[in-house]
Amino acid sequence: MATRQGIVAIVAGAIVLAGLALAAGLPHLTHAAAPAIGGPFTLVDGDGNTVTEKTFAGKWRLMYFGYTHCPDACPTTLSDIGAALDKLPAAARQKLVVLFVTVDPQRDTPKVIGDYAKAFGPEFIGLTGTPAALAPVEQGFRVYAQRHELKGGDYAMDHSSIIYVMGPDGNFIGVLDDTMKPADIAGRLEQLGA
């Protein structure tokens, strides 16, 4: 049953992807001349520490937006990233973090998102914040998130499911498709220089 929300989500997703394609020069995923993706943010990690775009300066960052109540898409993508990192040389892994940013701050407290992210590997850091703190991040990354009511009073979040690659200087490098297999993700990261 295709919902109206679903159609809105798909249209919004198409706009986001079109924007990303322009910014990143898809499909070649070369360095963007004028990266319009990213920007400053102030969020909170699982231990309650403040995390900004400068916290991981010098490291490669994979950023993925989702939520812990997501039963399929988010754990599958995070698990694939974890399996991809297992294929990278140890030296590359040490220079890389995976930031899992919630689109569901109502349920994802710092502890919830922090513990959740850690389960996928030591490089995984869960980030949350107030809706006011998250809004500019979603805007900066062109992330779309829409609450979607489920039967029985619960809700899910429809959301952009794209892995953003940020270089050690904090600049946007490109995106990885969430349907890529771990070997492809690892290969692409090596190709990008991570």
């Binding site: 679903g6 989500a9 798909i10 986001v16 829409q146 489920l150 429809d158 952009s160 499911s161 794209i162």
Partner: peptide, 21 residues
């Protein structure tokens, strides 16, 4: 508490869930 059939829909970089009765 509850179980239901869902389909994750992937389209143009968006991930959503559709209920399937």
């Amino acid at each position: 508490g509850a179980a239901m059939l869902h389909k994750t829909t992937q389209m143009n970089g968006m991930s959503g869930m559709t209920d399937m009765d």
